[in-house]
C-alpha cells in the first residue's frame, strides 16, 4: 500500500515536473536572462562596470562577505548584478544554467510529488477532511504553504540582481524555520478542524482551522525584516516576483490535480468494494 502511494505521488510529480520544466524553459529562463541583462546594463551605466569585473572571483554566494561591509554597498551591488548579469563571472555559462534549471524544474516536481503526495499523503490521508479529490487539493495547499507560502511571508521571491539586507547565513535558517512553521500551521489546522468538527460543528471547525494561519502571519510579522532593492524598475520586480509565485502555485495545482486523477483512476481500476468507501458510485 505504501509503495502504491509513493508511486502515485511520484507519477503526479512527473506530470507537474513536466509542466514546471516547460514553464522554466519557456517563461522563467528567458525572463531571468533578460532581467540579468537589464541589471548588467544598469550597472555599466552607473559607471561601476570595471569594479564589477574586478570584483568577480568565485564567491558567487559571496553575499556573506558583501553583507558585512555595509560601507561598500555600491561594490556589493555591482558584484551581485555582475554575478547574475554578465555570466562571464559565474562558474558556468548561461546555456548550462538554462539547461540545468529546466532539469531542476522537472526534478522539483518529482521531489515534491514523492515527498508530499507520496510519503506525507500516505500518513496524513486519514486526517485530511473532505471527499477524495478535495484531499488531494488540500494536500497541495498545505504543500504550497509549507514549501513556499510561509517562507515567502518573510522572504518573498526576489528579482534577479536584487540586493537583500539580511545575509545568506541569516536567510537560510529563516527560510527553513518558516517552512517548519508553515508545516506546523497546516498540521494544527487539520487537527483543530477534525476536533471541532466533531464537537462543535462546521463553523467552529473552520474558525479553528484558520487560527493557526493567523499565528503563522503573526510569526512572519515579528521575524527580522529583509529589505530588498534592485536596479530594475519596481514594476518589473513586482511582476517577476508575482510570476514566480504564480509558477509555484501552478506547480502545486497540477500536482494536486494529477494526484486526484491518478487516485480516482487507481480506485476504479482495482474496483475492490472496500468497506467504508462510500465515494464513487462504483463505475460499471
Amino acid at each position: 500500500m505504501f509503495a502504491e502511494y509513493l508511486t502515485r505521488g511520484v507519477k503526479a510529480g512527473l506530470v507537474a515536473g513536466l509542466v514546471f520544466g516547460l514553464f522554466m524553459a519557456v517563461v522563467a529562463n528567458p525572463l531571468v536572462a533578460y532581467a540579468d541583462e537589464l541589471n548588467h546594463a544598469a550597472v555599466e551605466e552607473s559607471g561601476h562596470g570595471h569594479e564589477a569585473e574586478s570584483a568577480h572571483s568565485h564567491d558567487s554566494e559571496g553575499a556573506h562577505s558583501h553583507e558585512t561591509d555595509g560601507a561598500h554597498s555600491h561594490d556589493s551591488g555591482d558584484s551581485h548584478a555582475g554575478e547574475g548579469g554578465g555570466h562571464h563571472d559565474t562558474a558556468v555559462s548561461m546555456a548550462v544554467t538554462k539547461a540545468v534549471s529546466v532539469a531542476a524544474g522537472g526534478l522539483w516536481g518529482v521531489v515534491l510529488g514523492g515527498a508530499f503526495f507520496g510519503v506525507a499523503f500516505f500518513f496524513l490521508e486519514p486526517a485530511i477532511p473532505g471527499p477524495d479529490a478535495t484531499r488531494s487539493y488540500l494536500m497541495g495547499l498545505a504543500g504550497f504553504v509549507t514549501v513556499s507560502g510561509a517562507p515567502w511571508l518573510v522572504l518573498p521571491p526576489a528579482a534577479p540582481g536584487a540586493e537583500q539586507s539580511l545575509s545568506v547565513a541569516t536567510r537560510l535558517p529563516l527560510y527553513a524555520g518558516m517552512m517548519l512553521a508553515g508545516a506546523l500551521a497546516c498540521l494544527s489546522a487539520g487537527y483543530a478542524y477534525a476536533r471541532l468538527r466533531e464537537s462543535s460543528g462546521l463553523v467552529a471547525a473552520v474558525v479553528g482551522a484558520v487560527v493557526p494561519f493567523g499565528l503563522l502571519a503573526a510569526v512572519a510579522v515579528v521575524a527580522p525584516e529583509n529589505a530588498v532593492h534592485g536596479a530594475l524598475s519596481p514594476t518589473l520586480e513586482t511582476g517577476l516576483a508575482g510570476l514566480f509565485a504564480f509558477g509555484q502555485l501552478l506547480l502545486w495545482l497540477v500536482l494536486a490535480a494529477a494526484h486526484a486523477q491518478f487516485r480516482s483512476a487507481g480506485e476504479s481500476e482495482s474496483a475492490t468494494p472496500i468497506a467504508g468507501r462510500d465515494s464513487a458510485p462504483a463505475a460499471d
Binding site: V27, T97, A104
Partner: peptide, 11 residues
Amino acid sequence: DSLHNFRHAAG
C-alpha cells in the same frame, strides 16, 4: 550558479 534561473523561478 547553474541553478540560478531555477532558484529564481522557485522563489
